[in-house]
Design a protein around this nucleic acid. Structure first.
Length: 485
RNA sequence: GGCCCCAUAGUCUAGCGGUUAGGACGCUGGGUUCUCAUCCCAGAAACCCGGGUUCGAUUCCCGGUGGGGUCACCA
């Protein structure tokens, strides 16, 4: 039976390189064995749902050339492919679980749960639900539901132990005392990941669950769910997690993680994929530069390593430079015309530079900072005039990039949303707009003079902005004398 | 902290009981070149520690250490 695998991103932000990494392995495995690669959107979190995220994810994966056989846009026999459109299915499946006592309703309030956790932390006890509502009389529970009381549905974890058989790691044992009575249905009626994921994987005929190691410790819950439903488990495969240079899980705090960033800086998709592949897969010989097709042809689990690799952008650059060099000039020119000097982008740059250039030929040097990676701060730094110390400046910028990502408005990164967020930010932190805006301008542009700040930031782009500010903070911190003025 | 995963140069990896421990990026030196880049040559750089098993452990087993993940009505 040919395998069916899936990638199941959740539309909660920018498309992550980790998603691309996992998608690549799913894709290669499916293609190797003539199976199907399914794309499913896991949008069960109403709070974190981000407008436009799904589209960006699809577009990013498409850019990389990882095409799916079934998905929200192309359809398929096992649709719909958005979990928010499958709510009825989850409801149907949970009912018998509750009826048979394999799951139960829980009426505990957030307050009680918080208090419980505090107690457990103080007592250094195991964190987790204490089973308070486990033995509630079903009749009574039903009555409370009818009375309109809020509740969740939890999995009743039985005694014993649960074994996860992982293709890469062998048998992994968990004592069931360690497994929490996981919430399956939230009080808003939406399923949690755990429920939706298991139900969908089964109903979609997924044979191999290939995902990141972060899921390994919740896999016993999934195994238990398969058992509760009486279904056959898929094969589990947990890949190592991509890391930052300090070995922590790859994060935007420390690395550009948006696929869009790599696309907009001009990495070639095939090169990017090749680089990702080398992070966890090896050909077996000394070949490191190979195509997606070559990877597919050679794909075997014995060639996949399980340690979490550091995502090293320096090596990516080397690969990319190599491939650009290999490009015939006409091809290079076409690529640049399309991806660097697209007419939409030129039009946007023109709008901002129109009134600021004196000769036509000034255009390119004037807008040069909208292109490329980090900029050189050495010449602007002496001209930086703010009524704060550089240490304060570094600190506020770090806070800024941190907060902007958590703010729905800031995250949208349009001129309007940026301005609204930035002004509110100044008030909140008691900074003069003038000082903060100067820092943002210099950090993002490497210049003290630029087009209107928020238009500029929006056009520089979120990822490039974040990358430069991070670099700028580093520069500020290493400046010897605190310039006041 | 509990549970779980992982462990070859700075980084990504090959190795699957006996190897001068291989390749790639980066780094250093040299050559080609008007400069730079490319290209070529050379070099420094690794088996986490301690016990076993074995004639022999980087490789198998156990323990420790280190790193990571996870402990949500997020995925």
């Amino acid at each position: 039976m040919p395998p069916r695998v899936r990638i199941a991103p959740s539309p909660t932000g920018d498309p992550h390189v980790g998603t691309a990494y996992i998608a690549l392995f799913n894709y290669a495995f499916a293609r190797r064995h003539g199976g199907k690669f399914v794309l499913r959107i896991e949008d069960t979190d109403q709070q974190r749902y981000t407008e436009g995220s799904e589209h960006a994810i699809l577009e990013s994966l498409r850019w990389l050339g990882l095409s799916w056989d079934e998905g929200p846009d192309v359809g398929g026999e096992h649709g719909p492919y958005r979990q928010s459109e499958r709510l009825e299915l989850y409801r149907e499946h949970v009912a018998p679980l509750v009826a048979s006592g394999k799951a139960y309703r829980c009426f505990c309030t957030r307050e009680r749960l918080d208090a419980l956790r505090k107690e457990q932390m103080a007592a250094k006890a195991r964190l987790g639900y204490d089973g308070h509502c486990r033995s509630l009389d079903p009749q009574q529970a039903e009555a409370r539901v009818q009375a309109g009381e809020a509740y969740v549905v939890r999995l009743h974890v039985p005694e014993g132990k649960t074994v996860v058989t992982d293709r890469l790691r062998g048998d992994v044992e968990f004592a069931n005392e360690q497994i929490d009575d996981q919430v399956l249905v939230k009080s808003d009626g939406f399923p949690t990941y755990h429920l939706a994921n298991v139900v969908d994987d089964h109903c979609m005929g997924i044979t191999h669950v290939i995902r990141g190691e972060e899921w390994l410790s919740s896999t016993p819950k999934h195994v238990l769910l398969y058992e509760a439903f009486g279904w056959e488990q898929p094969q589990w495969i947990h890949l190592g997690l991509l890391r930052n240079a300090d070995k922590s899980k790859l994060s935007k705090r420390k690395n550009p993680v948006s696929i869009i960033h790599y696309r907009s800086l001009g990495y070639l998709p095939a090169t990017f994929l090749n680089f990702l592949a080398t992070l966890g897969f090896s050909m077996g010989d000394d070949r490191e530069r190979f195509s997606l097709q070559e990877m597919i042809d050679a794909f075997e689990w014995s060639k996949v390593s399980v340690g979490g690799p550091v995502f090293d952008p320096v090596k990516l650059d080397a690969f990319n430079a190599d491939d650009i060099r290999a490009l015939p000039l006409p091809e290079l020119q076409a690529q640049i015309a399309e991806h660097v000097l697209g007419s939409d982008r030129i039009a946007a740059l023109l709008a901002l530079s129109h009134e600021r250039i004196e000769r036509l030929d000034d255009f390119i040097p004037y807008v040069s900072f909208f292109f490329g990676g980090v900029v050189d701060y050495s010449t602007v730094l002496p001209k930086l005039k703010i009524k704060r110390t550089l240490a304060e400046a570094a600190k506020i910028l770090a806070t800024f990039v941190d907060e902007i990502e958590r703010d729905p408005q800031g995250r949208a990164f349009t001129p309007q949303s940026l301005e609204a967020f930035s002004r509110a930010f100044c008030e909140r932190h008691e900074w003069k707009a003038r000082d903060l805006f100067t820092l943002l301008r210099v950090g993002a542009a490497g210049r003290t003079a630029a087009p209107p700040l928020f238009d500029t930031l929006a056009l520089v782009g979120k990822d490039r902005f974040r990358m430069r500010i991070r670099d700028f903070i580093g520069v500020l911190k290493t400046q010897p004398k605190p310039a006041k003025g």
